[in-house]
Design a protein around this nucleic acid. Sequence first.
DNA 1: CTGGATCCTGATGGATACTG
DNA 2: CAGTATCCATCAGGATCCAG
Lengths: 113, 113
Amino acid sequence: MPCDKSCPIEHTVNLIGHKWKVLILRNLFNNGTQRFSDLSKGISKISQKMLTQQLRQLEVDGIIYRKVYPEVPPKVEYSLTALGNSLKPILDEMNSWGIEHLKQSQLDQHNNE
Amino acid sequence: MPCDKSCPIEHTVNLIGHKWKVLILRNLFNNGTQRFSDLSKGISKISQKMLTQQLRQLEVDGIIYRKVYPEVPPKVEYSLTALGNSLKPILDEMNSWGIEHLKQSQLDQHNNE
DNA sequence: CTGGATCCTGATGGATACTG
DNA sequence: CAGTATCCATCAGGATCCAG
């Protein structure tokens, strides 16, 4: 079973198979609608360029919605679309797995001291 | 809730938040133990260098196991460890989501013709 | 012949400075 | 505030080379 264009996992990976995208989604799931600066603060170490880039891609792919308020100072809000919300089970599984194995990896680290 | 070092999702993403890693795991889940060349054929468009690199990282992180048979011609088998197997729910969710939305994106494509 | 290391080149990511 | 623009470091792909 080769992993070609019709592979469901490949399709999913093409949309959210990127470290920063997952973290952006995490932020939107946890905190709801977020402004650019909220995301910037909420995701440690992401550069503005990367944040902009990934937000644009998520928007093009119909996963998030970008609402611009035509005012000064500028205000832009990002929120999940229905498609974006449908990704929640995946994020939930990643969260559960992380909780479980963060414990383990912290123990490992402790044992190595 | 900032996304710092103790964020479960960030931990998960740090281990498998890479396109090729997910596809490698997909291959191992679907086909069981695989040789280097099996993975190379099963994952369309991955370069040998990238495959080697990602396999090494997955091995270091304890997600896959690498068994070398000291024979000619060389033979190396990759399989999932217990930790690797515990990632199955995540892959399953990605698969389900992909199945659901591959339909949609194919319809969209059809409508644009 | 398989698995993978190396080299070179083009693409991508990060840090900073600047703008509407 | 929400991005661009710029420059530089690192990474990815392709071809080739090598050891068992």
